[in-house]
Amino acid sequence: MSTSSFQRPLGFLALLAVATALVLAALYCVAFVARPDVTLGIVQKIFYFHVSSAIAMMLCLSSGSLLSLVDLVAPSDRVDALARSAIETGLAFAVLVLTSGPLWARKSWGAWWTWEPRLTLTLLLLLLAAAVLGIRALAPDGTGRKIAAALASLAAPVAYLIHVAVAKWGGTHPMVLQGGGIQSPGMQITFRVALLAIALFAATLWTLRFRVLRLEQRLLNLQLEFSAQDVRQQREGGPT
């Protein structure tokens, strides 16, 4: 592990600064650039953050699953920290999606919740991610990492099948992106800015967690090294 990246967190600070600026810009666009939707009114503005959060969540969780698989095949502390921080970030965004989703759904579909493919998948992924992180914490010394990695790698293909199943079951999610539901240029620009802002926000959180986990790993290694020296010293000092 390179110590320099921790001592000189310039890259991270730059990321943080750009992400912050973009989030502010997105808020400005949402408030002043995009006009309220003709039929849905002001509530439609949740869309910009809801959809972006959903995309960020899917990216984080699928990366987490893939990285878990990599760690299972070729174990490495760095990959493990990347995978774990990805799943944690994905979980945070899943919470965002599931709070913003019903607010929008209430207005546009008239119900807080529908068993619609993407919403259902998000809910199940949230439960799975929470369970995987929980297992990792509760497994005996050192075994949690592999168990969590195995379950996380299984989750991606199963998530695909869940999506197929719920979609077949029938859903009413607005096909905004495919169908071109947002027509006005102001709305389109706002959506792009919001998407970029949320993506960078997710990257910032992910990087932050990754750095913390790497520091934790380093601390643990140092602690181990000290305890080994401790045992050696006792040995020399004590009667043999």
Binding site: I135, T143, V158
Partner: peptide, 16 residues
């Protein structure tokens, strides 16, 4: 060998 396995098992199994 995981603690609270009785609770965690359905939590993982049912979504999968």
């Amino acid at each position: 060998h995981v603690r609270l396995r009785e609770v965690l098992l359905p939590l993982v199994l049912y979504p999968l």
